[in-house]
């Protein structure tokens, strides 16, 4: 199961960040959310904190989204030691998406009224 992101549908409302932190901490705190939205003039880019990696990768690169350069680290799903986001603010332990438990029911998808986030198998 994966969460599919359609960045052209995202409006930047950040309700996914809100509900993720509510789900995991019982309060609204975007710094504890496992999904973060980057906002640009032309589109918004939700990024999900994915599986941990042991070490930083060696394929750090620039990617192109809608014709514009973006730092590859920004859109990469891996929680890697080189990344400063997706860290629990008090302990610095990496935050990782858990698809909101078992059975999987990702709340960010449920709260995405713009359908930018959908589930695919």
């Amino acid at each position: 199961m994966r969460i599919k992101i359609d960045h052209l549908k995202c409006t930047g409302c950040k309700l996914c960040e809100v509900v993720c932190s509510l789900q995991h901490t019982e309060a609204v705190n975007l710094w504890r959310s496992r999904i973060r939205v980057f906002i640009t003039e032309d589109y918004c880019l939700p990024v999900i904190g994915g599986p941990y990696t042991e070490a930083m990768c060696n394929s750090k690169d620039v990617v192109f989204v809608e014709g514009k350069e973006i730092d590859g680290c920004v859109v990469c799903r891996a929680s890697c030691p080189a990344k400063s986001i997706f860290k629990e603010p008090d302990t610095a332990i990496p935050l990782k998406c858990d698809f909101c438990g078992d059975p999987p029911d990702p709340q960010c998808v449920a709260w995405c009224d713009a359908d930018a986030l959908t589930i695919c198998d």
């Binding site: 409006t11 930047g12 409302c13 032309d42 918004c44």
Partner: peptide, 13 residues
């Protein structure tokens, strides 16, 4: 129009 732009927490954008 370039895109719909929501305020924080607004589904209507």
């Amino acid at each position: 129009r370039v895109r719909d732009e929501a305020c924080f927490g607004c589904p209507f954008a």
